[in-house]
Design a protein around this nucleic acid. Structure first.
Lengths: 210, 210
DNA sequence: GTCTATACGAAGATAGAC
DNA sequence: GTCTATCTTCGTATAGAC
């Protein structure tokens, strides 16, 4: 006996689709309301489902939050490493360092989620572990880029690569934080300015040492 | 007719005392649990009172949170400006910049509260305003210190004071964030190291320009 | 002003139908 | 796997005694 209709989606695909929709909705709602104030009802509704669908796909609210964290971090890391493989000019490298022309965390939603995750991590070590890996990956990415820039400029870095990478990442994070609090005084491209200043001064220091 | 007992505390003092105790307890509990998960019951109990005392002194949970914010920020600013008045040596200035030998936000509770406030500020503009004032005061403090260091060293700053102050504050914040996430790899005194590197490289840059 | 008791709403979680 | 209905917990806020 033949099946009367050929479903466009297999069962597995349908499940994945629901899960993906829920994760996407969760991303919006968690960013908007924060973990504690985000209602599973809102999330489900935004995804076009009912609360039951949430519990069919995730054990509970925390499980959904952690699944989103994994999903989000993986995308962020992929995004970063994808850019590393190219062989850029130094200026392109500097531009790429801060992600498509502005601080990566100039985007409000992106920044809100990151802070939400970081705050959660401060109280939950297992989440801190994942963010730690993310930060290390980012610093590796920054570090290799810094080295490429230095090599292209023919200078010898006046400090360990790791220290400079840490400095750059801390700057990106700190400036995003301050810019979101005081956008009138602190534009997000202060990060680019800071990188430029840093590049110039480190170059001057390297020259002075040789 | 004479009063039989002389109360150690006047009524007004007693009120202030209760209020202070509640604020202190709130500081602990908000830092520990976060705004949403902090129960007024816990706060009152920790202060040695019942929930009624909270509502006698504050309109509601948010009001208590905002009162704590004001209280906390004022203490932080007082703390900072108090250090500015001294006439330090350059090295003392550098040390003072990051607060008593380590990053000011190496302290877990202090950092948790700050992040809690910042996250709240991202969703509530009136709180962002207060943090903005705090950040500006801090940058002014950093800026005047940077100028004093430069003057003592006899160098001309190779960038606007404001930019350098922003850079220092962003570094302090960013490094505290990363250190709390990955304490094994990133010690809190990375901030001191970063300041030292920054000082050296900016000095080299200033020398190269003159 | 502070306490106890209570009302009330919100939201996470579960059970059972489809 | 998804939905609706229900249970339950929790915490804010209020009312009234002291």
């Amino acid at each position: 006996m033949e099946r009367s209709t050929l479903p466009r989606l297999t069962r597995a695909e349908s499940v994945q689709r629901t899960r993906a929709a829920l994760l996407s909705a969760a991303e919006d709602v968690f960013a908007d309301k924060g973990f504690a104030d985000a209602a599973l009802d809102d999330i489900a509704e935004r995804a076009g489902f009912s609360r039951g669908a949430v519990y069919a796909n995730f054990a509970n609210k925390t499980d959904l939050f952690l699944a989103l964290l994994d999903n989000w971090l993986q995308r962020e890391i992929d995004n970063g490493t994808r850019l590393t493989d190219s062989d850029n000019t130094p200026q392109q490298d500097i531009d790429a360092l801060d992600g498509q022309g502005g601080n990566r965390f100039a985007d409000r939603k992106r920044f809100l989620l990151l802070i939400e995750f970081r705050l959660y991590a401060l109280r939950h070590p297992e989440v801190a572990d994942r963010l730690r890996d993310y930060d290390r990956a980012t610093m590796d990415w920054f570090g290799s880029t810094v080295e490429r820039v230095a090599e292209a400029s023919g200078i010898r870095l006046p400090a360990p690569t790791e220290q400079i990478a840490l400095l750059v990442l801390a700057l990106e994070h700190g400036i995003a934080t301050l810019a979101h609090t005081d956008p009138e005084r602190i534009p997000h491209d202060s990060f680019l300015d800071a990188l430029t200043l840093l590049n110039r001064s480190l170059t001057a220091m390297a020259a002075a040492e040789s």
